[in-house]
């Protein structure tokens, strides 16, 4: 008797979404099978990694994360260029963390100016993420949309509380949106329906069902992503057939485990290796859950994950 690998029969397909400006677009999505189940279907566009750039100098990063960017950490545009030129970033994720009213409270205009500078400095697709404060993000992202008219940024988080304002602005200036929901498949679906009702085109939506770091609720997030993918691929749920983005780096690099020095916690081992591995492993997990875009920070973690994607895509 010969052994046959049991195969899942898929009825759905993830939408292909072109990101970035014309002539320089990168396509994500398009899967017709579970992540890396290449024996069952296709993944025409391997998952992409976006490298993080911050709007202002980060204050609470461990040395490990700062070191690769120490020379550019005060200048977002130079930082972005370094990511692309030195580390070969496929995308940039500009984190407008400094706009948080509880942080530096940068104004919408300042944030828009920084975004424009970074956007002028690189031509890879650019993700621009606000501080997750519904009201502030509305002001900031509207201004960002305006100054980068027509560049097809990927802007977010677009949440239930501000989807109309940001969604409509994104339509007006032709950007893609990141629909963000708190770890719940039905809320994810609902927001996609609402964006559709607002006339945001389907090829302009990426979803972010939330990510936790390894050891910080990752398994819950993993399940939700997995279920979204199952609904999309085998349960004909067409309002969930969108590529998934996982904004994981900021979760990883704020955990205690990447910051405690070895002297205080000898069992945790080398602090540098530890941070890189936690980031890489978190990324690896969400890849298996179905993420299409990984927002990552450390170049060494990125190269580990890139290698892994390559291996998985070639069936090694």
């Amino acid at each position: 008797m010969t052994f046959e690998i049991p195969k899942v029969s898929y009825t759905g397909k993830i939408r292909e979404i072109p990101l970035g400006r014309e002539g320089k677009t990168v396509i994500v999505g398009g899967e017709s099978c579970y992540p890396f189940h290449l024996f069952e279907g296709e993944m025409p566009n391997p998952p992409k990694i976006a490298m993080e750039v911050y709007d202002s100098e980060p204050e609470d990063w461990p040395e490990t994360a700062i070191e690769p960017f120490a020379d550019v950490i005060k200048e977002p545009a130079a930082w972005a260029r370094k990511c692309v030129d030195t580390y070969g970033a496929e995308m940039i994720a500009l984190q407008l963390a400094g706009t948080d009213p509880n942080d530096k409270d940068l104004s919408a205009d300042e944030a828009a100016k920084i975004t424009k500078e970074v956007s002028d400095a690189v031509d890879v697709p650019m993700i621009v993420l606000g501080c997750s404060n519904v009201e502030k993000d509305t002001d900031v992202l509207k201004a960002v949309c305006e100054v980068c008219d027509g560049r097809n940024l990927i802007i977010g988080p677009v949440a239930e509380g501000n989807y109309r304002a940001i969604g409509a602005t994104a339509i007006g200036y032709k950007h893609t949106v990141v629909a963000s929901t708190p770890i719940d498949i039905n809320l994810a679906k609902q927001l996609n329906i609402l964006l559709g009702n607002l006339n945001v085109p389907d090829e302009k939506i990426i979803i972010d069902p939330s990510t936790g770091a390894l050891g910080y609720g990752l398994e819950y997030c993993y399940s939700v992503m997995e279920r979204i993918r199952m609904a999309a691929l085998i349960q004909e749920d067409e309002r969930l057939q969108f590529p998934i983005i996982s904004n994981l780096a900021r979760e990883v690099w704020k955990t205690k485990e990447v910051k405690v020095p070895e002297s205080e916690a000898p069992l945790l081992g080398d602090i540098k290796k530890r941070g890189i591995l936690i980031e890489a492993l978190t990324a690896q997990c969400v890849l298996f859950a179905g993420a299409d875009i990984l927002v990552m920070r450390h170049p060494e973690a990125i190269s580990l994950v890139k290698e892994s994607i390559k291996d998985l895509m070639t069936g090694k």
Partner: peptide, 12 residues
């Protein structure tokens, strides 16, 4: 129009 019009859509 772009600056003001979006307010009609987002409800401001």
């Amino acid at each position: 129009m772009r600056k003001r019009g979006v307010e009609f859509v987002d409800g401001t």
